[in-house]
């Protein structure tokens, strides 16, 4: 119940912030959509999922900054491959060990791999990820395990 109320409040604030029109009829429609979304998330059994402490770490913004930088670097590599005449692709499917305890960290790692161009997560099998790598550089970057360590750091010692 507490989660239902906090979710409704959060949605109401979001709605008020991005609506910008405060006539009675629009407000009623907004309240209606808040109720609808709360009812739907209850039906989907996802209420309270946002109250995961892993989502509110001070490390998260730092991780995002680092990730954006990695994305820029990876993009430049792939862009160079696209423009070079012979492309020099070397596609491989790798298995990467997954060393993270919590589901949030596992999903974060898998999503981060997919988000950096050059590597795409294909499957998660137990304690391994199956990753498709496009270029040798992408493969080496993944095998160095730097991103895995960063996510481990993000998981922290809670």
């Amino acid at each position: 119940m507490r989660y239902l109320i906090s979710l409704a409040l959060l949605l109401a604030v979001l709605w008020l912030a991005i609506s910008g029109v405060y006539k009675p009829i629009i407000l009623i429609l907004g309240a209606g959509s808040v109720v609808l979304v709360v009812w739907l998330s209850r039906r989907m059994d996802v209420v309270g999922i946002e109250h995961n402490p892993a989502l509110y770490s001070w490390r998260l913004p730092l991780y995002w900054g680092w990730l954006v930088w990695q994305i820029v670097l990876a993009n430049l590599q792939i862009a160079r491959r696209i423009l070079s005449p012979d492309m020099g692709l070397e596609q491989r499917v790798l298995r990467v060990p997954l060393k993270h305890r919590s589901d949030v960290a596992r999903v974060t790692y898998a999503q981060s791999i997919t988000l950096t161009p050059g590597t795409v997560t294909l499957r998660m099998e137990g304690d391994e990820l199956e990753v498709h790598a496009l270029t040798p550089e992408a493969r080496e970057g993944l095998e160095s395990g730097e991103m895995s360590r960063k996510v481990k750091w993000l998981e922290g010692d809670r």
Partner: peptide, 18 residues
Amino acid sequence: RFPDFYARLHAAGVTDTL
């Protein structure tokens, strides 16, 4: 330009992120 489906996924990733 990319030769197969999985390579094209990466090209799509370039346009989606950067």
